[in-house]
Design a protein around this nucleic acid. Structure first.
Lengths: 257, 257
DNA sequence: AAGTGGTCTAGACCACTGA
DNA sequence: CAGTGGTCTAGACCACTTG
């Protein structure tokens, strides 16, 4: 038998413990980790446990509810992933002092994104050059001094119209192989993904006004507001690449479900 | 004893199975789920399993590696969370046909964000009114017809300067209590969080050119490029609120680690 | 040093879902 | 209906980290 634990605000209308009391004895119930999660989440929402408060240890919760500690663990892991609680060995479980809304985004491969929208995909190399990285890129990599890297500019097209302009810097010290790749035939991204998977990736979103160059590459007007997705990757601590994906006006990024 | 499984591209320099062969017999090894994850991830990266391919079933992998199925499950769950594989009962595990980069963002409570940056937080109500929702908001809610909701406009301040302009619509059918709240004393967000937790939340990011109104509220120039974070929430299928957080120029959103 | 969370195992049963 | 993933249990041991 499986029953739903109290679920706080999330389903106030649902009856809790509608079965006869006896059947509710911990020993007789088989709790799902989701119900345990809802139970604890409910207590956080109704401020039984306020931000910063310590929750009982897993063992106690398990005993109280009459389930295995593993099940409480599973629920807790989910609450950690959602950003609701923080756990530390010996330190116990606490409600996150600064609650956040945690959102997950899938950043697709542009080719797939375009083709999934039933549009034809195109790729056009704009420029390749070796140059000293600008300060902004050095900052993204966390490098103190500006060194030379290979810069690759390209445009991704959807139905033959500009869709995303890509301004990429590749660290040729980490990725010397890029020097031998014919980037007019193969996008730098596809080559990198196949040959140099990263171990760390940092992403940032922001808005910029279209410069003259952006406007030209994206076939839009200077001054338009453009969403930029900047991605910087490393293998261990060695920089691989930092790329700004400058999107066409109106581009939106949605949470995945 | 615990050894690290092959890890593909991710750590090509690390020796694999450096111990004597005997000690590597599955039966004698205690694999961590992380090592199993790396092992499988490696096989995905090196195209042993290409996008769309089916992986062996958990039982087989467990037997091959000599660990419990639970451990393989744990690794697989992580690969699902990372967007690398897709799993279905009876259907098995497959490499995601359209690989994505999955990123997680923490969207903090603005007050906390400001105070954590050691700046003083302020909040100022701009306007409250009842009006028919514009098409864009109806679309966000997925509503066919435009109905009347309560609109709340406010500015969040950091060090007494505008930081985020908030344009919010609240469905008074779902949340009638909002009508009795003194919003000059309490931000709509804080009241809603406390009294009406959502069961579904959709977030989208995009860039807009500062309108005259935005420029006025944010104390910036019209035409500036602004990052907008739009959040729409429901309880079950009933709309709660849709809010545009229009940020000050230069605002960036970073992945959490 | 002790307390708490993290993980692993072995086994059982359940719940989807594809053939 | 049968195959595969999802979850639960009970127990053991490990690994942090705080007092």
């Amino acid at each position: 038998m499986q029953v739903d634990l109290a679920c706080g605000h999330l389903s106030p209308s649902k009856g809790i413990y509608t079965q006869k009391p006896e059947t509710l004895l911990p020993q007789n119930i088989r709790h799902s980790w989701q119900s345990v999660r809802r139970y604890i989440h409910g207590k956080i929402l109704d401020k039984t446990y306020a931000p910063g408060d310590k929750l009982p240890k897993d063992d106690d919760i398990a005993q109280t509810l009459g389930c295995a500690r593993t099940t409480v663990q599973r629920a807790m892991r989910d609450l950690v992933d959602s950003g609701h609680v923080v756990r530390r060995r010996k330190g116990g479980t606490r409600v996150r002092p600064d609650p956040v809304t945690r959102a997950t985004f899938d950043i697709p491969i542009i080719r797939n994104e375009v083709e999934n929208a039933n549009r034809s995909y195109g790729y056009q190399l704009v420029n390749v050059a070796d140059a000293v990285i600008p300060n902004q890129v050095a900052t993204s990599f966390g490098l103190g001094n500006a060194i030379e890297m290979r810069r690759i500019e390209a445009v991704h097209l959807a139905d033959n119209r500009p869709y995303i302009f890509e301004d990429r810097w590749v660290d040729t010290r980490t990725v010397p192989g890029i020097l031998d790749v014919d980037l007019s035939q193969q996008s730098a991204n596809e080559w990198l993904v196949r040959h140099h998977p990263y171990s760390r990736c940092e992403i940032r979103f922001y808005a910029v006004k279209a410069t003259a160059a952006y406007a030209r590459h994206l076939n839009t007007a200077p001054g338009e507001a453009l969403l930029v997705m900047e991605r910087t990757t490393w293998i261990d601590t060695a920089p691989i690449t930092s790329v700004k994906a400058v999107t066409v006006p109106g581009y939106q990024l949605l949470t995945c479900i």
